[in-house]
Design a protein around this nucleic acid. Sequence first.
DNA 1: GTCTATAGCAGGATAGAC
DNA 2: GTCTATCCTGCTATAGAC
Lengths: 223, 223
Amino acid sequence: MSQRDRDASTRERLLDEAEALFAEKGYNAVSVREIITAANCNLAAINYYFGTKKNLYLEVFRSRWISRARRVQEHFWRLLEDQKPLSLTVVVKCLAQTFLEGPFSDEENRRQHQLMGREMDRPTEASDLVHEQAMKPFFAKLAGIMRPLLPEKLTEEQLMLNIMSIFALVLHFYLARNGISRITGRQYDTALKAQLVEHIIRFSLTGLGQGFTPEAETNQERN
Amino acid sequence: MSQRDRDASTRERLLDEAEALFAEKGYNAVSVREIITAANCNLAAINYYFGTKKNLYLEVFRSRWISRARRVQEHFWRLLEDQKPLSLTVVVKCLAQTFLEGPFSDEENRRQHQLMGREMDRPTEASDLVHEQAMKPFFAKLAGIMRPLLPEKLTEEQLMLNIMSIFALVLHFYLARNGISRITGRQYDTALKAQLVEHIIRFSLTGLGQGFTPEAETNQERN
DNA sequence: GTCTATAGCAGGATAGAC
DNA sequence: GTCTATCCTGCTATAGAC
């Protein structure tokens, strides 16, 4: 337990440790005993402050996840503002940098992505919050500024799929960090993460396109 | 319970229902009582056939996941063989089709991806199997055929990141199906999935590149 | 506000009849 | 090979002392 944790109120310590554990292992894999041990308090404290384990989980989203999402998004728009004029490259670069390296510590970033990943996989009541207050408005605003940068023929749905694909890469390169370490044989550290940012930018903008040839395209059409 | 399930041996029914439940909810969220209810047998059967819950989980991978992975990969190479001459487009198309629509039912595909997703997120003993017997050899062989289709300056690591990115999209568009339905407002059905295949092929080959401009690139370099 | 003690229940595992 | 009955552990939640 850090100094800051010792100083913080029991309630704050509980939220903090609960968030870390829920993010790392998922709701069902965490027991309240684990949480109270990490927060260095007693079993009854959870009931006193939050009523139930489930409500503690929801409170993690209400008082931590959502506000952090807001701050990340503000960070993104500020970053974008600094890089005018707008272009696809700039938008993707700001997205990758914001969501992979972000305005927070590695630890906070990881929590944020893991919690979201779990909610996307198996939604709980927290999903309503996540979608309504964070994802839906952000995606809508993002679509608004990307729309004029992309071909007009693109449907709204294709635009959304494009945006979701960038997030898919960011999210995957966080959540599957174990698999990535295994495949590349490298530690998932700052150096690797910086390389992942570069990769995501390049892949999002051009795909594998470096080797894309008209003949290949023609070949595809024939099948 | 289907007719096939009723006919299958208790052992097979247990493996089948356990796989479905583990894939859907994760190891910790599933109780053995849930499994034996679904498999329509008694509690002692799990101990009799598999010893422990954990070993039942591992057996799901040993006797189901791995063999299915082999069959999926064989399907991919056959598909690729039929589409010569090789090109990036062909490879990506076969990958997307194989892993999103595959040679199996929707249900089996979902199980396969969900189980893998869980192991990438939080590895258990099953991860060794998954990586050594399925992912590592497949990625290596895939890298071998894609290498000549991509620029020579590409490092082995960049090549792997490219391959992993395609899989990231496939995996995400399975695992986050709830979020996708929320964003697009559509049911995650066959029609949507076919559209996702098209999208993954296009995004993997060209990214957002439709709107990619030299000025934007120049702008990026300045930052 | 924080503690101890415990109720009440569900979990995995197992013994032993058939 | 399949069953019932049961053990024991660990869980969430709560009552009540301080």
